[in-house]
Design a protein around this nucleic acid. Structure first.
Lengths: 249, 249
DNA sequence: TAAGCCGTTCGACCATGTTGGATGGAAACG
DNA sequence: CGTTTCCATCCAACATGGTCGAACGGCTTA
């Protein structure tokens, strides 16, 4: 546990405020098992940073997080060039279109737009999942060097998310080989029961920048011709994104 | 300046990382005028919290902000009940539909969906503006008790955002009076040149929960019949939201 | 009126944040 | 290929400032 106890504790306070959905010094103190006076000064200080507000007695997380989060998202080049194409993709297919990126060996949902047919999942921007547990992540994994893949698996293991999640390194590597040759990844029920996903990696200058994917109810993805149609759209969109990424401002 | 220098500094480091779009210890140290070793340990600690990552040499803000921000947004009841109606509103009108809330006397953009006709402004979720500088904010102000309005004006002043921004308390109060009797607020070029906005406050149990608004190019809002049409849609949407807010889960 | 609860303030102790300097590895240069 | 430079990281002594117990005061409850 590297230095700065106070800083780490400050973020613990933030976590507690999230968990309790707002709290006073006493509650925070109990939850963290520290004196009230200590909790109090943390809350005061966090308030002075703007990341915490004191709304009618209880301290709450402010919208500074939302602001910073959005700004980070909007500054991301992959988001900038993907946002519009992804919107079009969702409009054309009617399904849920998503863009994810890799961060620290994990999969981060950067943006998703729902089409008219798509069901609302709890997919919020910033949601972090394992890479191996769905098509979008596997599309990325398929483009990473083998030793990075191994390193990630070593570090995180392969704990199952649903009953369909890959839990064995051999299977994963074989699957990634297939993804590479097919140029796309699919999954059924791997991340969420009842949902299937098709994903393609975004590669520019031999570097994976992320992946885009379409998620829809399992029975729809199982229809082969429908799947082919989605895949086509997906590839067109990917093409657009790649070009914009290379030559766009 | 309330206590916890280290905590406040940690957030200064975060600001610097944002400003520099990622940096090493040396850059941070220079920017903040502190020893490198100090900058280093802050970065290490922030990294251990997950809010900062060390991507290929430079420390950067992670997507933990995006994650936390989204979760805060999604937990907000006003967002939960407004999201779908707002989407419909944007689809029907083709314009940019927005929902804002008040926090600490300021206006926070919680969510916006663009219609097909709408132009992309830099309106990101979490963006914070004064309340008095556009219709969405004035709609909220119009429903706050007079002394809160005065308190806010006292605290923040009325610095102009564009040439059309209200800069005088008398004018503001008179305008709010009008908003109250009309039931909606309008502005031309007050927040952004060339854009006009119509907004209505969301009131449940005599409490303003926020406001929804439509923004479009000034010339379009100036058309009286078009404005009336937008206003109608806006009011319908508001009705839906209010009911959902009261009786929804 | 008394008792309990909670947010806030105060002051002293010493843990811990702070600092300059040392180390080592990688890149830039001759 | 050796040298220099730069920068991230580590270290150890110092004193700042984080920590904690206790006390104050406002608010609600019995």
């Amino acid at each position: 546990m590297p230095g700065m106890k106070s800083v780490r504790r400050a973020f613990d306070v933030i976590d507690v405020l999230w968990k309790l959905d707002g709290a006073g010094p006493t509650e925070v103190a109990n939850e963290m098992d520290i004196p009230q006076s200590t909790a109090h000064i943390y809350l005061q200080t966090l308030q002075s940073t703007g990341y915490v507000v004191n709304a009618s007695g209880t301290y709450e997380l402010s919208h500074a997080f939302l602001s910073m989060g959005s700004r980070i998202k909007h500054r991301n080049k992959i988001y900038q060039v993907s946002q519009q194409p992804l919107q079009d993709l969702a409009d054309e297919t009617g399904e849920l279109a998503t863009i994810v990126i890799e961060e620290e060996g994990e999969c981060v949902f950067l943006h998703n737009v729902s089409g008219e047919k798509s069901i609302e999942l709890g997919l919020y921007a910033g949601l972090t999942t394992p890479l191996y547990s769905h098509a979008a992540g596997k599309a990325i994994l398929s483009q990473l060097p083998l030793d990075r893949v191994n390193e990630i698996v070593d570090r995180q293991g392969l704990s199952p998310v649903t009953s369909e999640t890959i839990t064995d390194r051999e299977t994963l590597l074989k699957e990634l080989e297939m993804v590479r040759s097919d140029g796309y990844a699919v999954d059924w029920d791997q991340q969420i029961e009842g949902m299937g996903t098709i994903g393609v990696p975004i590669v520019v200058d031999d570097q994976v920048r992320g992946s885009i994917s379409i998620a829809c109810p399992t029975e729809r993805v199982k229809d082969k011709s429908y799947r082919a149609k989605l895949l086509n759209k997906l590839r067109e969109t990917n093409e657009t994104i790649t070009i914009k990424y290379q030559y766009g401002s």
